[in-house]
Simulated assay, not measured.
Amino acid sequence: MARAAKAVIDLAALKHNYLLAKSLSSGNKAVAIIKANAYGHGAVVVARYLADVADAFGVACIEEALELRAAGIEQPIALLEGFFTADELELIEQHRFITAVHSQWQIDAIAASSIKTPIQVWVKFDSGMHRLGFNAEGFASAIAQLQSLPQVASLVAMTHFACADELESDYTETQIANFHAACDQFGLPVCMANSAATLHWPQTHGDWVRPGIMLYGASPLDQKTDAADQLKTVMTLSSALIAVRELPAGEPIGYGRRFVTTEPTRVGVVAMGYADGYPRHAKDGTPVAVNGQMTRVIGKVSMDMMTVDLTNQPDAKVGDPVELWGAQVDINEVAACADTISYSLYTGITNRVPRIYS
């Protein structure tokens, strides 16, 4: 019998979340962000399932884009970090990729290229993230240069928000103002909104939105909102009990003896560990569900196994199901208990965990 660890992917929920992003942005175009293997959900399967509704797909690099084209995906694909070397421009032209441009050297490379079929460019403005993009003076120059090049078919102005997930922060308003001050004079289509902005900042929706983590059912927001409550969970990470132990008070569990029983304790051993992608630093008390009943992690997570508290489940037995995150166990709560974020957990699921699509 196969090891029980698995990640079940609800594709109908995925499509629901994409269409929610579209509806929140009044039907504007939406780039489905499927970089990093669709946040661990399987980029090719996700792209194929969304192909009938997605306006475009977004990836981090040309390798991810080429994988989609090789799988028969024909929708526009945006390279969100642009190209890394000038020789990628030939592939961008050949496969009709959209490329971000964030630096002068990229403009120079396009100008020096032998592109015959003009390409689509999304030119990035640094509105305050201070990671990639042109400042206000550089942005105006970049627009002028790109508009003059025969190798460029069209432009979209884009930016990225640093704090859109923090609903009480005023920094997003500052970034919006910076963006409009730099961009409005050019009259270009705009793409501003990531998942957090799509869910909460309607003034950022522009012509394109870029739903990422929200596609997979996890809210990036630091508070509950009506919009975020409409998201449906896509991935359920689950396994099963492989042993049940009865320990008296005063006994340590797991590496380092981090957890010591304070009363007679029923302990379940689960076939799931950090080699599967479950966070090693999950604290005692991290939520899990056994047989649909909420309980907690006790003891350090090891490479292939973890231990959970079954004291309140006297009938739990080997083979019983365990949900690590999903519809019942909120991945954001698991992430908080491991001092990380849902993005890290999703993308960290390893290849030895089979993805099962439903």
Results as ranks from 00 to 15, higher is better:
6 K>V: 05
7 A>M: 15
11 L>A: 02
15 K>V: 09
25 S>M: 06
35 K>T: 07
35 K>H: 09
36 A>L: 13
37 N>A: 09
40 G>Q: 13
43 A>Y: 10
45 V>Y: 03
48 R>D: 11
53 V>K: 07
53 V>F: 13
54 A>E: 12
55 D>F: 04
57 F>P: 11
60 A>D: 13
69 R>E: 05
74 E>D: 15
77 I>P: 05
78 A>W: 15
79 L>V: 01
82 G>V: 03
89 L>N: 06
93 E>Q: 13
97 F>S: 10
99 T>R: 08
108 D>G: 09
111 A>K: 14
117 T>V: 14
118 P>C: 09
137 E>L: 14
144 A>T: 11
144 A>G: 06
147 Q>R: 15
148 S>H: 12
152 V>Q: 09
166 E>L: 15
169 S>L: 01
171 Y>W: 14
180 H>D: 12
185 Q>R: 14
187 G>M: 04
193 A>C: 06
196 A>L: 12
203 Q>E: 15
205 H>N: 11
212 G>V: 05
215 L>P: 02
216 Y>H: 14
216 Y>D: 01
221 L>P: 06
224 K>Q: 10
227 A>D: 13
229 D>C: 00
231 L>A: 09
233 T>W: 03
234 V>N: 03
243 A>Y: 05
251 E>F: 05
267 V>N: 08
271 A>S: 14
279 P>K: 13
283 K>T: 01
284 D>G: 02
286 T>R: 02
291 N>M: 12
295 T>R: 09
298 I>A: 09
305 M>G: 00
310 L>C: 03
318 V>S: 04
318 V>H: 07
320 D>P: 09
322 V>H: 02
326 G>K: 03
333 E>D: 07
336 A>G: 00
338 A>S: 14
338 A>G: 00
344 S>V: 11
352 R>P: 03
